[in-house]
Nucleic acid binder design. Structure first.
Lengths: 330, 330
DNA sequence: CTGTTAGCGCCTTCAC
DNA sequence: GTGAAGGCGCTAACAG
């Protein structure tokens, strides 16, 4: 691997001059510029970003910490992050925490050691230590999707209002007994959506039946189990509100297993759309989040922080969800 | 940010000793080891991987270059890569080429500059320059999913046999006019699958009608368009072979639009399963690829190369596809 | 078992 | 407009 020294020697200049030409910093006569550039080409020189980073304290790299890239929602967020980062010459290191706090901790430390310039972070569980460690180092971080009880730049959707609209939609359809199938209580999106659900019921003067509110996890398996339990409640609810896409799929499967039709025997609405590229016939009524935009906006915010821009105070971007009514709600 | 010098000073030892303790390289008495460790803890010292990498010429980082993380197949491959890498303490930098050769080239160069230790590469288009550049630098690379006309470690599925089985399956069901909807001719998986299709027809003594073979791209849009065209061919085929999942979805939509039922009016088989976590009722007959395992195996192979292991010659891992018969084939 | 020396490749600082 | 010196944080190679 040739270095700037090799280039310098070949071009008959000093190493600094090579650096200056390559980075367009400082003056350089057209003549030397030419000589350096031909030397670079002849040698096939490539800068070593490790050395650059060590010296300049910037790696042009972002850490992306999500729960599971296998969930199409995070996939899309990741794509938004990657595209926005690439646009500014930044690379993205991908990490899956699987909602495990220890994995999150491990990854964050690793990324800090790698001197990433910033983080796009989906906090796993309710462990704030990792986030705080990042902030303490003075490394910019944007929290995505979830609320955290500390000041931090963030991008998320209005979960509560989205849930409110979905529930309201069911109420307008005449449903009075609506079950909520949610994720872990430690995750703000899970609780916010249940809060929106509650508020909609209360605003409509419909009593909240605590036996119809389930908290488990954001998985298909959990959706299946919660639904299996909910159909046994007496009197049986007439509609379900699934707090994410996986739970919804699990719910549909459980309903089929129980011989119940959607929406005739049980209406269903959900948070998060399913990827339209993979679905043959969209039929779920959903409050969908602009996943790509979330990733993109988060990254843009992060990069603006890196550029030294922005206000002093944390920026909190809250995007609206989009209610799409389809056949599953009757 | 404290450095080993700070730690050394505090512990009353030389910087090297700190390095030795931290990396468990070379001897260190229990006493100094203790002193170093408490100093590390007190200072909150964290190694700088950039400096380590510059010195040791190893970054513990892999470059993952795929066409589009948004496709669940690649998502799953990526997850396999990430998990396997993480197991050995490696990080993964994610890049989407969107099948663009210039993007591929750009990314590969960037990753080389970042001194990644190895590549998991899905070659975009039929441009080998990027791959050759990697190999020329002596950086290990494993090609995934596609065949390339140069020696290289690789992991892929047996596309030809998979396609053969799918076509054979349709033939056994009595179909004689079967259309093939494929991707770009520049991608080996597209051509291999058509080759398998041809061979199955020939082995069954069924003449190949070139008007029933389409090459466009691996997208839903292309699937839709090819299907719209294929139903106009006279005599109309009775079955379709979609060369990947997106094409299959596009085909189904086009068939619906044309008022044709699957499988009654048109049977359908496809390569690549749809993610079972997102599908309510799997009904596509498919030859599915073990995507997660492909990523995992590729990464393991790559890491074994980094460890200096393996044979001299390129290793070519060809995994079998799994035929899953469901209702779409009648 | 521990320390000294040197240098990975680059860029900032200061001279000329 | 160009160059010399020094150091970013770490570890290999060689002492002792």
């Amino acid at each position: 691997m040739p270095t700037i020294y090799d280039v310098a020697e070949r071009a008959g200049v000093a190493p600094v001059t090579v650096s200056r030409v390559l980075n367009n910093s400082g003056y350089a006569s057209e003549a030397t510029r030419q000589r350096v550039e031909t030397a670079v080409a002849e040698l096939g020189y490539t800068p070593n970003r490790l050395a650059q980073g060590l010296r300049s304290k910037q790696t042009q790299t972002l850490g992306l910490v999500v729960t599971d890239i296998t969930n199409p929602f995070w996939t899309t967020v990741a794509r938004g992050v990657e595209d926005a980062a690439h646009l500014e010459g930044f690379s993205v290191v991908l990490c899956n925490t699987d909602e495990s706090e220890s994995k999150q901790s491990q990854y964050v430390d690793l990324l800090l050691q790698k001197q990433v310039d910033g983080f796009v972070l989906v906090p796993a569980g309710n462990d704030l230590k990792a986030l705080l460690r990042i902030q303490k180092r003075g490394v910019p971080v944007v929290v995505v999707d979830r609320r955290v009880p500390v000041p931090a730049d963030s991008v998320r959707c209005d979960s509560e209002t989205g849930a409110y609209h979905l529930t309201q939609h069911l109420l307008e359809r005449g449903h009075r007994r609506i079950a909520a199938l949610s994720g872990s209580r430690t995750v703000s999106t899970a609780t916010d959506r249940v809060t929106g659900y509650r508020r909609a019921l209360e605003d409509a003067g419909v009593p909240v039946d605590e036996r119809l509110i389930f908290h488990r996890s954001f998985t298909q398996q959990a959706g299946y189990e919660m639904t299996t339990a909910v159909v046994e409640v007496s009197p049986r609810p007439t509609a379900l509100f699934a707090v994410n896409n996986f739970i919804a799929i699990g719910a549909i499967r459980a309903l089929r297993a129980a011989g119940l039709r959607v929406p005739e025997d049980m209406a269903l609405v959900a948070f998060d759309d399913l990827p339209l590229t993979l679905i043959i016939e969209p039929f779920l009524t959903v409050a969908s989040q602009p996943a790509y935009e979330m990733g993109q906006r988060a990254t843009e915010l992060l990069l603006s922080r890196l550029a030294g821009g922005g206000e002093e105070n944390p920026v909190e971007i809250v995007l609206p969800t989009v209610l799409t009514v389809r056949s599953s709600s009757g």
